[in-house]
Amino acid sequence: MTVVIGFEGSANKIGIGIVRDGEVLSNPRRTYITPPGQGFLPSETAKHHRSVILTVLQEALDEAGLKPADVDCVAYTKGPGMGAPLVIVALVARTVAQLWEKPLVGVNHCIGHIEMGRLVTGARNPTVLYVSGGNTQVIAYSERRYRIFGETIDIAVGNCLDRFARVIKISNDPSPGYNIEQMAKKGKQYVELPYTVKGMDVSFSGILSYIEEVAHKMLSSGQCSAEDLCFSLQETVFSMLVEITERAMAHCGSQEVLIVGGVGCNLRLQEMMGVMCEERGAQLFATDERFCIDNGAMIAQAGWEMFRVGQTTELADSWITQRYRTDEVDVAWRD
């Protein structure tokens, strides 16, 4: 049996999870929630993580019923993400790895999402849509790499949603995306927004600028409601994501789609993707908020795969990096 503890803190969530051969033993998490209209800044987020990380670590061990001696390997997020929060998490991971005399594994955050999604859903070789506050990529596996077929050319889809939420002061608790999703259910009219698919890629910054410019005018003149804007934004950006996912599937001859990342727990996105899959006779795999949203277990799971094929990280090489592309990782654990 191989037990891996995973540390994640690349954005506003701090999570520590323990995985033993595909079984999640514990996965506690805290979220840094900012007031409506405000995003999370690196140094404030790092302070939040700093204040709770040791408590979360103790919870992870207690819930799993394990002692440090039972752990075989310490995995942590090497990148991509915000520098200051990444450093906090890496510091604790490096320290406990040495205290407990366990090897360290630096994990690519995106790979963590993919491997967790594969574990939880049982998808074998899916086309992956990875959608979160910091990333938007369509990925397919080929010859030991997760290859990026399409991605955003500017901001992530989740960043577009988060920033729209700030414009009309939607609460960030539990997350702006969740609140947009709930409001969108009450939307009655579709407001036309720019639709920006460019080949295999997508762009969201123009949509955000447009909606930022018109939102207050339309709301104050009663042309539409905030719910209508939530609905219209979701329909537009999710259609774009479904379109590029379908195109990637056609290229790869794939019959499986896996949605991962924080935006992936949006049920409307899952529903739209499901319709496309049904039309193609393909199968959709998605997970709920426990595993879609950043968490420690996903880093533990990717770390488990890496550790089992001997990919460990020397302390001297354990620096964090804000930029770390999905296709840089040698996926030695897959055929």
Binding site: I53, L57, Q58, T95, L99
Partner: peptide, 14 residues
């Protein structure tokens, strides 16, 4: 300070 605190809390078992 974080490293020292981590050592204080999690350093003993081993």
């Amino acid at each position: 300070a974080l490293v020292i605190e981590t050592m204080d809390v999690f350093g003993q078992p081993v």
